[in-house]
Design a binder for these strands. Structure first.
Lengths: 112, 112
DNA sequence: CAGTATCCCAGACGATACTG
DNA sequence: CAGTATCGTCTGGGATACTG
Protein backbone atom coordinates (compact mmCIF):
# COMPACT_ATOMS: atom_id res chain seq x y z
CA UNK A 1 0.00 0.00 0.00
CA UNK A 2 1.08 3.50 -0.68
CA UNK A 3 1.04 4.90 2.84
CA UNK A 4 1.23 2.03 5.31
CA UNK A 5 1.95 4.29 8.28
CA UNK A 6 -1.21 6.27 8.01
CA UNK A 7 -3.45 3.41 7.01
CA UNK A 8 -2.11 1.14 9.72
CA UNK A 9 -2.67 3.77 12.36
CA UNK A 10 -6.00 4.84 13.76
CA UNK A 11 -5.93 8.19 11.99
CA UNK A 12 -8.45 9.73 9.72
CA UNK A 13 -7.14 12.36 7.32
CA UNK A 14 -8.49 14.98 9.70
CA UNK A 15 -6.92 13.61 12.86
CA UNK A 16 -3.59 13.01 11.14
CA UNK A 17 -3.58 16.56 9.83
CA UNK A 18 -4.48 17.89 13.25
CA UNK A 19 -1.70 15.93 14.92
CA UNK A 20 0.90 17.17 12.46
CA UNK A 21 -0.41 20.71 12.82
CA UNK A 22 0.02 20.45 16.56
CA UNK A 23 3.63 19.50 15.99
CA UNK A 24 4.22 22.23 13.42
CA UNK A 25 2.72 24.90 15.64
CA UNK A 26 5.53 24.26 18.13
CA UNK A 27 8.07 24.93 15.39
CA UNK A 28 6.49 27.97 13.82
CA UNK A 29 8.28 31.14 14.66
CA UNK A 30 10.94 32.95 12.75
CA UNK A 31 13.84 31.81 15.00
CA UNK A 32 12.82 28.53 16.58
CA UNK A 33 14.50 26.15 14.19
CA UNK A 34 17.83 27.93 14.30
CA UNK A 35 17.66 27.87 18.06
CA UNK A 36 16.86 24.15 18.06
CA UNK A 37 19.70 23.30 15.70
CA UNK A 38 22.07 25.19 17.96
CA UNK A 39 20.97 23.01 20.87
CA UNK A 40 20.54 19.60 19.23
CA UNK A 41 23.01 16.96 20.23
CA UNK A 42 23.33 17.92 23.86
CA UNK A 43 24.74 21.37 23.25
CA UNK A 44 24.22 23.84 26.08
CA UNK A 45 24.09 27.53 25.29
CA UNK A 46 23.82 30.67 27.32
CA UNK A 47 21.43 33.41 26.29
CA UNK A 48 24.35 35.52 25.12
CA UNK A 49 25.77 32.59 23.14
CA UNK A 50 22.54 32.27 21.21
CA UNK A 51 22.42 35.99 20.66
CA UNK A 52 25.88 35.81 19.12
CA UNK A 53 25.22 32.59 17.18
CA UNK A 54 22.05 33.96 15.62
CA UNK A 55 22.82 37.22 13.87
CA UNK A 56 19.82 39.39 13.24
CA UNK A 57 17.69 38.23 16.13
CA UNK A 58 16.52 40.91 18.52
CA UNK A 59 16.54 40.41 22.27
CA UNK A 60 12.79 40.56 22.31
CA UNK A 61 12.38 37.84 19.70
CA UNK A 62 15.07 35.61 21.12
CA UNK A 63 13.55 35.74 24.59
CA UNK A 64 10.05 35.20 23.24
CA UNK A 65 10.91 32.17 21.16
CA UNK A 66 12.94 30.66 23.99
CA UNK A 67 9.99 31.12 26.35
CA UNK A 68 7.66 29.38 23.95
CA UNK A 69 10.02 26.49 23.32
CA UNK A 70 10.40 26.10 27.06
CA UNK A 71 6.65 26.31 27.71
CA UNK A 72 6.12 23.68 25.01
CA UNK A 73 8.61 21.35 26.65
CA UNK A 74 11.22 21.26 23.91
CA UNK A 75 13.98 22.99 25.82
CA UNK A 76 15.00 23.53 29.43
CA UNK A 77 16.14 26.73 31.04
CA UNK A 78 18.53 26.92 33.96
CA UNK A 79 19.09 30.07 35.96
CA UNK A 80 22.24 30.39 38.03
CA UNK A 81 21.56 32.81 40.86
CA UNK A 82 24.65 34.98 40.65
CA UNK A 83 25.77 38.42 39.60
CA UNK A 84 26.01 39.01 36.73
CA UNK A 85 23.13 36.67 35.87
CA UNK A 86 23.78 33.44 34.01
CA UNK A 87 21.10 31.45 32.19
CA UNK A 88 21.50 28.53 29.88
CA UNK A 89 19.42 26.37 27.62
CA UNK A 90 19.46 22.74 26.53
CA UNK A 91 17.10 20.31 24.79
CA UNK A 92 14.77 18.10 26.78
CA UNK A 93 14.76 14.39 25.89
CA UNK A 94 11.49 14.85 24.06
CA UNK A 95 12.84 17.87 22.23
CA UNK A 96 15.93 15.98 21.15
CA UNK A 97 13.67 13.24 19.80
CA UNK A 98 12.44 15.75 17.25
CA UNK A 99 15.81 15.75 15.50
CA UNK A 100 15.30 12.60 13.38
CA UNK A 101 11.89 13.83 12.27
CA UNK A 102 13.37 17.13 11.13
CA UNK A 103 16.08 15.21 9.40
CA UNK A 104 13.47 13.26 7.46
CA UNK A 105 11.90 16.55 6.43
CA UNK A 106 15.27 17.93 5.42
CA UNK A 107 16.08 14.84 3.37
CA UNK A 108 12.70 15.08 1.68
CA UNK A 109 13.12 18.72 0.77
CA UNK A 110 16.59 18.07 -0.61
CA UNK A 111 15.29 15.27 -2.81
CA UNK A 112 13.44 17.76 -4.92
CA UNK B 1 26.53 10.66 19.47
CA UNK B 2 23.29 12.37 20.17
CA UNK B 3 22.34 13.44 16.69
CA UNK B 4 24.18 11.30 14.17
CA UNK B 5 22.07 12.44 11.24
CA UNK B 6 22.98 16.06 11.56
CA UNK B 7 26.57 15.56 12.53
CA UNK B 8 27.18 13.03 9.78
CA UNK B 9 25.74 15.35 7.18
CA UNK B 10 27.38 18.46 5.82
CA UNK B 11 25.00 20.79 7.61
CA UNK B 12 25.74 23.63 9.95
CA UNK B 13 22.99 24.57 12.37
CA UNK B 14 22.12 27.44 10.04
CA UNK B 15 21.94 25.41 6.85
CA UNK B 16 19.97 22.63 8.52
CA UNK B 17 17.50 25.15 9.90
CA UNK B 18 17.23 26.78 6.50
CA UNK B 19 16.56 23.47 4.78
CA UNK B 20 13.87 22.50 7.24
CA UNK B 21 12.32 25.97 6.93
CA UNK B 22 12.18 25.51 3.19
CA UNK B 23 10.25 22.30 3.73
CA UNK B 24 7.96 23.81 6.33
CA UNK B 25 7.16 26.79 4.15
CA UNK B 26 5.58 24.40 1.65
CA UNK B 27 3.31 23.05 4.39
CA UNK B 28 2.34 26.31 6.01
CA UNK B 29 -1.16 27.36 5.22
CA UNK B 30 -4.29 26.75 7.18
CA UNK B 31 -5.60 23.96 4.89
CA UNK B 32 -2.62 22.35 3.24
CA UNK B 33 -2.16 19.43 5.59
CA UNK B 34 -5.79 18.40 5.50
CA UNK B 35 -5.66 18.54 1.73
CA UNK B 36 -2.53 16.42 1.65
CA UNK B 37 -3.92 13.81 3.99
CA UNK B 38 -6.97 13.56 1.75
CA UNK B 39 -4.69 12.82 -1.19
CA UNK B 40 -2.00 10.62 0.37
CA UNK B 41 -1.98 7.01 -0.69
CA UNK B 42 -2.91 7.57 -4.30
CA UNK B 43 -6.32 9.04 -3.63
CA UNK B 44 -7.69 11.25 -6.41
CA UNK B 45 -10.16 13.98 -5.53
CA UNK B 46 -12.17 16.50 -7.46
CA UNK B 47 -12.32 20.09 -6.37
CA UNK B 48 -15.88 19.56 -5.17
CA UNK B 49 -14.85 16.43 -3.25
CA UNK B 50 -12.26 18.40 -1.33
CA UNK B 51 -14.76 21.16 -0.70
CA UNK B 52 -17.09 18.60 0.83
CA UNK B 53 -14.37 16.69 2.69
CA UNK B 54 -13.01 19.84 4.28
CA UNK B 55 -15.80 21.62 6.10
CA UNK B 56 -15.14 25.26 6.80
CA UNK B 57 -12.83 25.96 3.90
CA UNK B 58 -13.87 28.76 1.59
CA UNK B 59 -13.58 28.45 -2.16
CA UNK B 60 -10.98 31.16 -2.17
CA UNK B 61 -8.77 29.41 0.36
CA UNK B 62 -9.19 25.95 -1.14
CA UNK B 63 -8.25 27.19 -4.58
CA UNK B 64 -5.33 29.20 -3.23
CA UNK B 65 -3.82 26.37 -1.22
CA UNK B 66 -4.27 23.94 -4.10
CA UNK B 67 -2.51 26.37 -6.43
CA UNK B 68 0.42 26.67 -4.06
CA UNK B 69 0.74 22.94 -3.51
CA UNK B 70 0.68 22.50 -7.26
CA UNK B 71 3.23 25.24 -7.88
CA UNK B 72 5.48 23.68 -5.25
CA UNK B 73 5.27 20.31 -6.95
CA UNK B 74 3.49 18.37 -4.21
CA UNK B 75 0.29 17.74 -6.12
CA UNK B 76 -0.87 17.50 -9.72
CA UNK B 77 -3.94 19.05 -11.25
CA UNK B 78 -5.84 17.58 -14.17
CA UNK B 79 -8.45 19.51 -16.11
CA UNK B 80 -10.98 17.61 -18.18
CA UNK B 81 -12.21 19.90 -20.97
CA UNK B 82 -15.94 19.32 -20.70
CA UNK B 83 -19.11 21.03 -19.55
CA UNK B 84 -19.66 21.22 -16.67
CA UNK B 85 -15.93 21.49 -15.87
CA UNK B 86 -14.14 18.67 -14.10
CA UNK B 87 -10.81 19.04 -12.31
CA UNK B 88 -9.06 16.60 -10.09
CA UNK B 89 -6.01 16.46 -7.87
CA UNK B 90 -3.50 13.78 -6.85
CA UNK B 91 -0.09 13.64 -5.16
CA UNK B 92 3.10 13.69 -7.19
CA UNK B 93 5.70 11.03 -6.37
CA UNK B 94 7.74 13.59 -4.49
CA UNK B 95 4.70 14.79 -2.61
CA UNK B 96 3.81 11.26 -1.61
CA UNK B 97 7.35 10.84 -0.29
CA UNK B 98 6.51 13.45 2.31
CA UNK B 99 4.12 11.08 4.04
CA UNK B 100 6.68 9.14 6.11
CA UNK B 101 8.28 12.38 7.26
CA UNK B 102 4.94 13.71 8.45
CA UNK B 103 4.35 10.40 10.13
CA UNK B 104 7.57 10.81 12.06
CA UNK B 105 6.42 14.24 13.16
CA UNK B 106 3.05 12.87 14.17
CA UNK B 107 4.64 10.05 16.16
CA UNK B 108 6.90 12.56 17.89
CA UNK B 109 4.07 14.87 18.84
CA UNK B 110 2.04 11.98 20.20
CA UNK B 111 4.92 10.84 22.35
CA UNK B 112 4.54 13.88 24.53
C1' DC C 1 -18.59 22.96 -11.39
C1' DA C 2 -14.65 25.30 -10.33
C1' DG C 3 -13.15 28.87 -9.62
C1' DT C 4 -11.81 35.04 -9.11
C1' DA C 5 -12.13 39.58 -7.05
C1' DT C 6 -12.44 42.81 -2.90
C1' DC C 7 -12.30 44.26 1.47
C1' DC C 8 -10.94 43.68 6.13
C1' DC C 9 -8.61 42.32 10.42
C1' DA C 10 -5.78 39.75 14.08
C1' DG C 11 -1.58 38.47 15.13
C1' DA C 12 3.36 37.78 14.03
C1' DC C 13 7.38 40.27 13.56
C1' DG C 14 10.75 44.19 13.72
C1' DA C 15 12.77 48.60 15.75
C1' DT C 16 13.74 50.98 19.66
C1' DA C 17 14.16 52.08 24.40
C1' DC C 18 14.46 50.83 29.19
C1' DT C 19 15.93 47.65 33.64
C1' DG C 20 17.03 44.29 37.93
C1' DC D 1 23.97 39.63 31.47
C1' DA D 2 19.53 38.62 30.40
C1' DG D 3 15.97 40.22 29.76
C1' DT D 4 10.76 43.65 29.39
C1' DA D 5 7.89 47.29 27.41
C1' DT D 6 5.92 49.92 23.57
C1' DC D 7 4.83 51.02 19.12
C1' DG D 8 4.38 50.47 14.20
C1' DT D 9 4.13 47.43 10.05
C1' DC D 10 2.92 43.75 7.06
C1' DT D 11 0.68 39.62 5.59
C1' DG D 12 -2.14 35.26 5.93
C1' DG D 13 -6.55 34.23 6.22
C1' DG D 14 -11.80 35.06 6.66
C1' DA D 15 -16.35 37.05 4.74
C1' DT D 16 -18.68 38.08 0.90
C1' DA D 17 -19.85 38.64 -3.84
C1' DC D 18 -19.29 37.63 -8.69
C1' DT D 19 -18.21 34.42 -13.27
C1' DG D 20 -16.76 31.31 -17.63
Amino acid sequence: MANPEVSRSSHTPESAAEGVETALRLLEGRWKLVILFHLFGGKVQRYSDLERLIPGVSQKMLAQQLRQLEADGLIERTVYPQVPPKVDYRMTAWGQALCPALDALLAWSEKR
